[in-house]
Amino acid sequence: MRVMTVIFCLFVSVMNSAVAADPLPSWNAGPTKDAIINFVKCATNDGCPLYIPPQDRIAVFDNDGTLWSEQPAYFQLMFALDRVKAMADQHPEWKTEQPFQAILENDFKAVAASGKEGLLKIMAVTHSGMTTDEFEETVRSWIKTARHPQRKVPYTQLVFEPMRELLNYLCENGFKTYIVSGGGVDFMRVWAEDIYGIPPEQVIGSSVKVKLANRDGKPVLERLAEIDFIDDKAGKPVGIHRFIGRAPVMAFGNSDGDLQMLQWTDRKPHTFKAIVHHTDAKREYAYDRQSPIGQLDKALDQAQEKGWTVIDMQKDWTRIYPKH
């Protein structure tokens, strides 16, 4: 997979050379695109006063709502709901037990009403009781066959092409890119390298506890129905410290769940902080302060107060998704 990542970067480099050296062709000309390119140019020019040594070129990205869509529900939740339906024959009690009854009856309002307790129940039964290898294969199979309920396309077709271009651009310029997401780390690691070019060791996310066990004389890691780490809000700086060990110089998010990560990056001068603002109801979705999914309220206020870059999807991107 590492070889694939190198080839991926080289391929992108060649392709970008062929499009008049524009590193971000899906971005409209303007202050947002200029801010990104100017920061990277200076960070990689040892004659610039804002030069950043290669080992310190750390860029962190939230996933849901920042690198791919997250409406009408987080895609990992959609995976969990599909898993409940697939497992229903083994659990006849779910026909009268919430929130599983609501899932089987496609009553998503009732699922939402179950709150955090209901969500934890769903995650416990769908993300545990199997080995890490079995979970990986389950996710891999789902990501190949599942379809978005509204757009009727694979979820991997709903990645943001402008952000993939940005990841490639940073890769070419010696930045090490990390996903720092509230989503499940084992869920994302299955497909992140193929879709984003980010290898599994550069994916940080929430996790369940695992234990070493023996099956048929072979060691396996079993996933337990216990939360190990929540990589969201205040957990994001903790995850960055624990798993990266260097402070980021670029950070990208889209919601209040990313605020602390942006603040953590903002402690140092000459860093780049950006928020993806969902403003395009026609090509994607438009939401911010009142949304139950990906709420952007306090972080938007702080971005405006501190002068962080706000990426307006409608104005700044010529397209949202890749061409297929």
Rank of each mutant, 00 (worst) to 15 (best):
241 H>K: 15
204 I>D: 03
16 N>H: 13
111 V>Y: 00
143 I>D: 13
247 A>S: 12
69 S>K: 12
53 P>R: 06
69 S>F: 05
60 V>P: 12
122 I>T: 01
206 S>K: 08
142 W>V: 02
317 W>R: 09
197 G>F: 05
225 A>W: 03
293 I>P: 07
159 V>D: 13
22 D>P: 05
109 K>I: 08
296 L>Y: 07
248 P>T: 04
284 E>S: 02
77 L>W: 11
253 G>D: 08
215 R>G: 04
117 E>A: 15
14 V>A: 14
18 A>E: 08
239 G>R: 10
289 R>F: 13
122 I>G: 00
311 I>W: 02
305 E>W: 04
133 D>C: 03
15 M>L: 15
288 D>K: 14
167 L>F: 01
240 I>T: 06
29 A>F: 10
164 R>G: 04
93 E>S: 15
86 A>S: 13
187 F>K: 10
43 A>D: 08
141 S>Y: 11
253 G>V: 04
223 R>C: 06
203 V>F: 09
77 L>C: 06
13 S>Y: 11
15 M>H: 10
63 N>W: 01
224 L>G: 00
205 G>H: 02
4 M>D: 15
85 K>G: 05
67 L>Q: 02
188 M>D: 07
93 E>C: 11
33 K>N: 01
135 F>L: 11
210 V>C: 10
56 D>I: 01
288 D>G: 13
159 V>E: 13
98 Q>H: 06
296 L>R: 00
188 M>N: 10
186 D>M: 11
24 L>H: 02
175 F>L: 06
265 T>V: 10
316 D>I: 10
251 A>F: 00
278 H>A: 06
318 T>I: 12
195 I>S: 02
123 M>C: 12
119 L>N: 08
222 E>G: 03
37 I>C: 11
80 A>V: 10
94 W>S: 07
118 G>C: 05
200 P>Q: 07
311 I>F: 02
157 Q>Y: 06
157 Q>H: 10
126 T>P: 07
148 H>C: 05
125 V>F: 11
121 K>E: 05
192 A>M: 11
241 H>T: 14
196 Y>R: 06
40 V>F: 02
3 V>K: 14
167 L>Y: 00
24 L>Y: 06
274 A>H: 03
188 M>C: 09
185 V>A: 14
34 D>V: 00
174 G>Q: 06
290 Q>D: 15
79 F>N: 05
108 F>H: 12
189 R>D: 05
215 R>D: 04
226 E>T: 03
157 Q>W: 04
147 R>K: 14
191 W>D: 07
210 V>G: 08
44 T>C: 04
253 G>T: 06
139 V>Y: 07
116 K>H: 09
303 A>T: 01
221 L>F: 14
98 Q>Y: 01
102 A>N: 00
25 P>G: 07
266 D>R: 07
202 Q>H: 15
289 R>S: 13
321 Y>H: 13
43 A>E: 08
194 D>L: 12
88 A>D: 01
67 L>T: 04
187 F>L: 12
152 K>N: 15
203 V>D: 04
119 L>Q: 09
247 A>G: 08
87 M>A: 08
160 F>E: 01
87 M>D: 12
299 A>I: 05
95 K>W: 05
140 R>E: 14
